[in-house]
């Protein structure tokens, strides 16, 4: 009896020595792939159950491994596996527990999932309200530990979800969560000693706040720097929380950056990209960089940091794209 692969509710036999990719393709399934040599990562799949052979995860980011992602073209399993394409959606109902303004236009939305929900702080979910409006938001806390989900939502003028939250949503309303997804989260697979740079604009702070707290809880030993970029000082939030954390932890530095401002005791004035690049840790080859928020900042800083010597696999980015609907 050969190895069997479960995919999309059907079971497929593999021939001896056949990869998961080749087997599924032989059964005429539409699985994305390109190089078939374990380098391009087009054929990334996710194991729901079953052991993943080590060869199928060589050089994947630790975050990918943690989500049981593997390269289907390099995966010749010894035992049966249940697999899916990555990020296959799981819907969980959730109820609004509370809403609290964090500054003049960012609300902290606290949701209680009504079913089991696990994720890594820093991943994101799609939130679907009763009117069918769907938007993606990053998770700012550790729902596995705290039994609720914290989202930071910036009110956008005439935004559909914004208008609904501002004018209609109340405690007890039911929403649907889809996900989680994303690779922007803390892992300690490579030890606890490396420097971490977290840089985000606006509500890009949400995933970074989750990652920061996770790293501190895990007993991270390397330096951690958090740069929060804002247009005006009034756009910053969680200032007290972050200052308190930096006082409690010698290894953590909080650096608010305000584009339209003057340097002072509290924040640095200027473009967050310039401020981050000027202060990158000396140990560039080991530094992990997490970037979240405005797409222009994320993409530009990603490139600048890479060119300055950071390893591509150590840069985790999550660009917040505006909704088109």
């Amino acid at each position: 009896m050969g190895v069997r692969i479960t995919y999309a509710d059907s079971v497929y036999d593999l021939e001896d020595g056949e990869s998961v990719l080749d087997g599924l393709l032989r059964h005429n399934l539409d699985i994305p792939y390109s190089c078939k040599s374990g380098t391009c990562q087009s054929c990334l799949m996710q194991a729901v159950s079953g052991d993943i052979p080590a060869a199928a995860q060589i050089d994947l980011k630790p975050g990918y491994k943690k989500q049981n992602l593997f390269l289907a073209c390099q995966c010749t399993p010894e035992q049966d596996m249940d697999v899916q394409l990555p990020g296959t959606a799981i819907d969980v109902p959730a109820v609004i527990h509370s809403m609290e303004m964090l500054n003049h236009n960012v609300v902290r939305l606290v949701l209680m999932p009504q079913d089991e929900f696990t994720c890594e702080p820093g991943q994101y979910i799609s939130l679907i309200n009763g009117k069918g409006v769907t938007r993606s938001y990053s998770i700012a806390n550790d729902p596995g530990k705290e039994d609720h989900i914290d989202l930071h939502i910036r009110f956008i003028k005439n935004g559909k979800m914004s208008l609904w939250l501002e004018n209609q949503a109340t405690r007890g309303d039911m929403l649907t969560l889809r996900g989680p997804a994303g690779n922007c989260f803390y892992t300690s697979d490579d030890g606890y000693d490396y420097p971490i740079v977290l840089a985000g604009t606006g509500t890009g702070l949400a995933p970074l706040y989750g990652i920061l707290n996770r790293a501190l809880e895990c007993g991270h030993k390397g330096r951690i720097y958090l740069y929060h970029g804002a247009l005006q000082a009034e756009d910053l939030y969680y200032i007290d929380e972050l200052q308190a954390l930096s006082e409690q932890h010698d290894l953590f530095d909080y650096v608010p950056c305000v584009l339209n401002g003057q340097d002072n005791n509290f924040y640095k004035a200027g473009n967050i990209e310039d401020i981050v690049m000027k202060a990158l840790p000396k140990n560039k080859a080991q530094t992990r960089l997490f970037l979240c928020g405005a797409p222009d900042m994320v993409n530009s800083l990603k490139k600048k940091a890479f060119l300055s010597g950071l390893a591509s696999k150590h840069i985790y980015a999550d660009a917040f794209l505006p909704s088109k609907t």
Partner: peptide, 21 residues
């Protein structure tokens, strides 16, 4: 950048005489 790095890897694999399709 990630997509481009994947493509560069496929190119390098080919140029290094490795398996490629």
């Amino acid at each position: 950048m990630d997509g481009q790095i994947a493509k560069q890897k496929a190119f390098l694999t080919m140029a290094f005489g490795g398996p490629n399709n």
